[in-house]
Nucleic acid binder design. Structure first.
Lengths: 148, 148
DNA sequence: CCGATACGCTTAACATGTTAATCATCCCCG
DNA sequence: CGGGGATGATTAACATGTTAAGCGTATCGG
């Protein structure tokens, strides 16, 4: 069987962990987890979004998102309302307080990202991301991998 | 600020999820989670290992490993004992039952891996893994990213 | 208008990720 | 040998991942 530690899932896991290890201390210092940051970050790129769309943007599953939104709302970092045309849908937007927090964290995050980019190489980083995107697309059709 | 969805952490996360989505149904069918599989898989490559080394092999944190080992032992899939020279150290090995399970799952996993490899390309896959490894190494020194 | 069905979101339940604290054993030095 | 610090592993506490179930609202057909 394939050398376990060299499998693709492990390679991806280790690489991602190596990257996130750089960011976590700063986020933690601001009282944010990685996922909370993803959500706030995604909210800065839109005026408001429906919960389902936000889940797609932040790449979170519904249940995780529900819990985190409850917490972020309690902390006053986001605002919620219902869509007028469809009361099932929730609409979320970032609050002024949330924006302020983002602005406080962003400089450090940008600096870390810049350091990573410099170490790895701008060109190489772009190439890596292109290859990761291609991998995603390659597998898009295989999704129905069921049973033996 | 950088387009959020194109950040390196998100690219890595999505790529890994695209890959794991292929494997999870099969593992689940055999009553294994991804992490349990990683542990059993790692145990097949050695006669026995100490817990700390196993954590490194399977890329799990100590607490996660402790919980999973407790479960795997209760299910009879692994065996544990203490190192004779140092009672603090635990030594883990896969049981015959565990080996049997691995052998039942392996064919499907190998087939899925082969399908992924074929879709993406053998050469391209190797290149991707090399780039991921290089990324890890690039960041190895930065680990002390503390505060702003 | 009503009821069956679908849809959006949340809650539930269990497993893992993450950091801090705890516990037992070891090791070194006085 | 004996006590204090170091080390290996587990437990604790909280947040998220993952799948299934539940709840309220929409929608459509009769």
């Amino acid at each position: 069987m394939r050398e376990f530690s060299r499998s693709l899932p492990m390679s991806l896991l280790r690489a991602r962990e190596a990257v996130m290890r750089q960011f976590r201390p700063s986020l933690r210092h601001h009282g944010l987890t990685e996922q909370q940051w993803r959500i706030l970050r995604a909210l800065t790129s839109v005026e408001a979004v429906e919960v389902t769309d936000l889940a797609r943007l932040a790449f979170l599953l519904g249940p995780s998102l529900s819990r985190i939104l409850r917490d972020l709302e309690a902390r006053g970092l986001i605002e919620r309302r219902s869509a007028e045309a469809d009361l099932r849908r929730g609409v979320v937007s970032i609050s002024p307080k949330g924006l302020k927090l983002i602005e406080a964290v962003a400089p450090t995050s940008e600096a870390i990202y810049a350091a990573i980019t410099k170490r790895y190489g701008v060109r190489k980083l772009a190439e890596l991301q292109a290859m990761l995107g291609a991998l995603e697309e390659s597998l898009a059709g295989l999704s129905g991998a069921e049973e033996e």
